[in-house]
């Protein structure tokens, strides 16, 4: 396959849940689960490598989306893609900042605190309780998953 099936399939499984088709969603979660850990093991496993990847994303992966999706004389802007690049850029910056701070400070950064992940946009928050409203996508606190 040209691209990894995993994220495509888990996204479609979530879509089936939203359509109230639990049986179809369960089948698709099984197919998606087959591709968990399908990527070859990464060469380097340290936070610094992750920070490097996250740092390159703005220029290498987000800017190309913005350029391709911008309006030209021939076509209107792709607003969905631009929205994804806007939220993606903000969340990518937060992922980078967290990985970077952890790489420098270590466990002390997170001890006694919880990590919250917005299930709508991926925004991450370190603290005692989830924010009332997600600063990136405006989802309410109940959309945050807790990683204790």
């Amino acid at each position: 396959m040209e691209y990894s099936p995993g994220p495509i399939l888990s996204n479609l499984a979530k879509a089936l849940e939203k359509q109230y088709r639990p049986h179809e969603a369960e089948l698709l979660w099984k197919v998606a689960g087959y591709f968990d850990d399908a990527l070859p093991a990464p060469e380097f496993t340290d936070f610094t490598s992750l920070v490097k990847m996250l740092t390159a994303n703005e220029a290498e992966y987000l800017e190309p989306i913005r350029q391709a999706a911008a309006s030209t004389e021939a076509k209107a802007a792709d607003r969905g893609a631009l929205r994804a690049a806007t939220w993606g850029g903000k969340v990518n910056a937060i992922q980078k900042s967290l990985a970077d701070r952890y790489a420098k400070k270590g466990d002390e950064l997170v001890e006694g605190k919880k990590l919250f992940v917005c299930e709508a946009c991926g925004f991450m928050f370190l603290g005692d309780q989830a924010p009332d409203i997600c600063p990136v996508c405006k989802a309410p606190a109940l959309r945050f998953a807790t990683v204790a």
Binding site: G6, P7, I8, S10, N11, K14, A15, L50, G80, A81, R83, A84, W87, G88, V91, N92, I94, Q95, L98, A99, Y102, G106, D107, L109, V110, E111, L115, V117, C118, E119, A120, C121, G122, F123, M124, A145, V147, A148
Partner: peptide
């Protein structure tokens, strides 16, 4: 603590990957 940070990052990264697929 290290596992917690890595797990939260993995979850957040998957959400962005899914957003790319969706759009």
């Amino acid at each position: 603590a290290r596992a917690k940070v890595a797990k939260a990052l993995a979850a957040s990264l998957r959400i962005l990957a899914e957003d790319g697929a969706r759009e």
